[in-house]
Design a protein around this nucleic acid. Structure first.
Lengths: 169, 169
DNA sequence: TTGGAATGTCAACAAGGCTGACATAAAATG
DNA sequence: CATTTTATGTCAGCCTTGTTGACATTCCAA
């Protein structure tokens, strides 16, 4: 038969999975991620913040009152690293940290009015680009985009993502 | 009509572009990129290298004999930053830097046997995950994935990407 | 031949990861 | 009630990888 390296199994058509195709996908991912972060990065820089601050603001905004531990597992960083970022956000009055009601060891995190305002500016910039890309590619492409991205996540992380996915706000 | 915030024009159906959809896409991008880099990161760490080394190896491998300037514009970093990475790779015998024949200010970069070997290990790990994701999502999803990613790049970067795309090896 | 562009190097600094050690308070458990 | 575990914060030190600025070298073109 001599079908080449991608003829292995399952009865499905896997000929589209050439190394060349996949290599292009890798580079597309690399270049697209740069575009994806470019706009918020500019805003952040003008405020003296970095991407780490953006991520914290984003996830605090998405799940109001989340705990530090929760945030750690979503962001996948150490508490020391997150703490440095949180401390500056709290000092600058963008984030409020309240002692937990049921468990007073916990800290529940909320955006202040000012924090919500910066978060909105950042996510609007990012959404604008994403919206333009979606629009250019069309609904069917977007569905495929999401499918591939979801399949690319680590299992544990996919659980986080799905939690977010099912939430109704 | 009261169609909501996404009813603006063009005659196309843009109702799928809800802020909620787009927010999910943003988070998918964030989580997927982590998965995308996780496997090579582990290999790199065991060699005492970081992502910057991976990127350099990748693009030197793709365009043998590329110059430093060329690499700079693809990677989007300063020459000082790239130089530090290149220096360690050269010192460790993974990359060879030859003085340009026509212009002796230029340095043409090549992977050594050892460098090519590490590059292969890194890209194989990354391709394995990408292949699994592609396989799980199917050919149509992959096409959509690539369309959206391409639309998300900066214009200048898209030019780089397309150059790569059209190359026949 | 001289000035400017391209290239590379050195030094210093910052962001944001990491580990390790330690403190505190509160909850859970014996 | 005593002890252990959990959640959080903090200090110190290290690494990678980005940044600027200053400066040397090389080449090309006016």
């Amino acid at each position: 038969m001599a079908e080449g390296p991608n003829s292995a199994g399952g009865g499905e058509n896997l000929l589209f999975l050439t190394d060349e195709q996949i290599r292009k996908g890798i580079e597309a991912m690399f270049f697209a991620y740069r575009g994806f972060t470019a706009d918020p990065d500019r805003i952040l820089a003008s405020h003296g913040y970095g991407r780490a601050h953006h991520r914290a603001l984003h996830f605090i905004n998405r799940t109001h009152g989340t705990t530090v531990n929760n945030l750690l597992s979503v962001l996948g960083v150490t508490k020391q690293s997150l703490n440095r970022v949180l401390r500056t956000l709290i000092e600058d009055g963008l984030v409020e940290s309240r002692v937990g009601r049921t468990d007073r060891r916990e800290r529940n995190l909320y955006l202040t009015t000012e924090g919500a305002s910066l978060e909105r500016a950042l996510s609007e910039a990012q959404r604008d680009r994403m919206r333009a890309a979606y629009r250019a590619a069309g609904p069917q492409a977007v569905a495929g985009f999401r499918q591939v991205l979801e399949a690319m996540m680590d299992d544990e992380i996919r659980a986080h993502y799905k939690t977010i996915k099912e939430r109704r706000t």
